[in-house]
Design a binder for these strands. Structure first.
Lengths: 167, 167
DNA sequence: CGACATTAAGTTGTGCACAACTTAATTGTG
DNA sequence: CACAATTAAGTTGTGCACAACTTAATGTCG
């Protein structure tokens, strides 16, 4: 068994050390995501929104009315996640859903008056979070870029693995 | 209404721009966390572990037997999350749980022989992920550090907000 | 000692993520 | 045109995160 650098490009790092580092990195990412979630949960509580619901509202405020499919494309969420979430937003009277006339398969979602009005109250939220991070705007932007690179690389590798499965 | 830099320390950035940036940053973090999750899900599939279960096993492999409380401290997870997760690991015969003799409130968790054996197969996983990220080890470590700083700042701010609530 | 607070696990309920599936509408092709 | 393939939503089931609660054991203090 080649326990030293068995796959390559990482110098002579033993699997053992990788496992230890992995605990640290996994923990950090998982933890940061949960800390973000918690910070937003606190900030969004008075708006009556969860973090994913806030993301959907952000997209709708930005783009106006959108079919479910497009919301999913922007946020990389499928209908299994979005359908119940949008139902909750609808019963909170923040969005309306109606079948598209020219394609009966599609459902168009748009903010109600209430949903549009909520935007004004949401404006204060991101600044609060940015302040909470204690990071200057430049670093927030840089972190965003790094995370995007990371996510894209992982997505690409995962897709490649999927493709390799079909052989 | 003071829509320009109403809280301070961010130059003259309008709330509107903050909301737009927020969509991008939120999306990036959320997306990176989910991409990581997906990459691990793929890699861990053959081990029969989910990502959080893998994290728990990492901690147990590292520290040996631990009370539930300590596992939660390492991973910042409460009993509401850990209890059912550990039950599943137990019914998969990867861990054993038994009441501590000297403190009947505490439950000690330790890997079974099966659980210990699984470590050998898990050794390949983190290297696969590291390769998938396409990042050199240095940058992985740096990202970890940045995420830790971020998580700590957010946790601290969130606790401060909680404390401020009680007044 | 005995009432009370604290602590560790566990339970319950809500919401999200995702896989696998169903349903209904549309598109493409013979 | 007819029928198979594709597409958009939605449904179902599993697992995680977390809040709020319960239960049982341990500590603490009058």
């Amino acid at each position: 068994m080649d326990s030293i650098d068995s796959v390559g490009s990482f110098g002579s790092v033993a699997d053992e050390d990788f496992l230890r580092l992995d605990l640290q990195v996994c923990f950090s990412l998982h933890s940061a995501a949960r800390a973000f979630n918690a910070a937003y949960r606190t900030a969004l509580k008075e708006l009556g929104l969860t973090y994913p619901q806030y993301l959907v509202m952000l997209v709708l405020w930005e783009h106006g009315e959108l079919p479910v499919k497009k919301i999913g494309a922007y946020l990389r969420l499928d209908s299994g996640t979005l359908s119940p979430l949008l139902k909750r937003l609808e019963s909170a009277d923040l969005v309306e859903r109606r079948r598209s006339r020219d394609d009966e398969r599609s459902v168009t979602v748009r903010p109600t008056e209430n949903g549009i009005a909520l935007r004004a109250r949401a404006l204060a939220v991101p600044r609060r979070i940015a302040t909470a991070t204690g990071l200057p705007l430049d670093e927030i932007r840089e972190l965003r870029t790094r995370l995007n690179v990371l996510a894209e690389a992982l997505d690409a590798a995962d897709l490649a693995a999927d493709a390799a499965d079909e052989s």
